Simulated assay, not measured.
Amino acid sequence: METKKTVVITGSQSGMGYATRLLLEKNGVKVIGVTNTDDAEIQADLSSAEGVAYAVKEIVRLTDGQIDGVFANAGVGGENAPLVFGLNYFGIITMLKALQPYLKKSLSGRIVINASNSVVITPGIPNDVVDALVDFDEEKAYKLIKENPFWTYQVSKTAITKWVRQNAFKEEWAGSGISMNLIAPGVVLTPLIEHDMKDPRKAEGINKLPKPIGTLPKPENIAPLVKFLLIDDSKFIIGQYIVIDGGTEVSWRGNDHPKTWDISFEDFGKLG
């Protein structure tokens, strides 16, 4: 008899996290939710090192160390760089590294990180800040973002995307039987977006987005992709950034991808 899988979801009580929780539980998965509110199994501030440490301790306690997957879904926007970088970047990596031994022990560990299609549809994201985050140079990142505070969210999502792309194939992750990927939703009709739609300025920008399907996705439209990556036969998908936005990105950038590899055969032969 197959052992019941256990999955950790951050931001488990609203939006995409909650929709995924319901779908996984419907499929017999035990879910451990982590939020900064008091309506989940674990209450913790994942933007701080102390909060992450507490969450990890409680996750291990509540699961007896049996952890098969993590959906790092919690995220935040705005111009508060310590909060945004802490939750969207540093906190995710710290938590995943702490849970890596347990995911490895699962023999089929899965990680899905909620990134954003803003990484590939937003012009002018300052790459110097992204690079500082990827290099874990916090002081430099905080200094540079002061010049471009509007991009704090996009920078954090770009940095976590680059970190996954640079690490998912390594021994610590894929080599340990852990498949790690990113999903990149566009605007999803969460309560937050529904609230934003009541603001004429924000609604104008949202309504200008291409919608080839004719509407915006709901959280329950995102959850099946997360379920597939977390518990279904998807272990050979490694380090991928999967856009799920109803066609917004491809409407604008359909000619940009795939990008062929501009490398000589001599250099290619040196790889591997």
Rank of each mutant, 00 (worst) to 15 (best):
S106K: 12
A19M: 04
E266K: 13
L87M: 14
N127G: 14
P217L: 09
K227T: 10
E147V: 10
I206M: 08
L230K: 06
T260C: 02
Y102H: 12
Q166L: 10
S108H: 15
T63H: 10
A203V: 12
V134I: 12
Q13P: 07
E204M: 12
T6W: 07
I42E: 03
L144W: 00
Y89D: 08
D196I: 11
I222M: 11
N88F: 04
A141I: 04
V250A: 14
I231Y: 05
D131T: 14
L229M: 09
K30D: 09
I242H: 04
D135E: 14
N255L: 14
D233Q: 15
S118Q: 08
P212W: 10
E138H: 14
L230V: 04
A53N: 09
G86K: 00
T63S: 15
G247T: 01
F85P: 00
I121W: 00
N27H: 07
A44K: 01
V76F: 07
V188Y: 01
N114W: 05
I238C: 04
V60G: 02
K105H: 11
D199R: 12
I32D: 00
I32G: 00
G175H: 14
G69Y: 01
I238Q: 07
K270S: 15
M95F: 11
N88T: 09
V112T: 06
A159S: 09
F85H: 03
S106F: 14
D135L: 13
A49S: 08
I263C: 12
N27C: 07
I111R: 04
K146A: 13
L192C: 08
Q100G: 11
K270F: 11
K104D: 07
R165K: 14
I178P: 00
P210T: 10
G15F: 04
G86P: 06
V31K: 00
K202M: 15
G246V: 02
K235M: 15
E249I: 00
G17R: 00
I113T: 08
Y18C: 05
P101Q: 12
D196A: 13
I93R: 11
G247A: 09
I9R: 03
K143F: 14
I59A: 04
N127K: 11
E79P: 03
L24E: 00
D39G: 11
S179W: 02
G17E: 02
V188S: 01
E204K: 15
E220G: 13
G51P: 01
E25D: 03
L230G: 05
K227Q: 15
W163V: 00
K140E: 05
G246I: 01
E58A: 13
S106N: 12
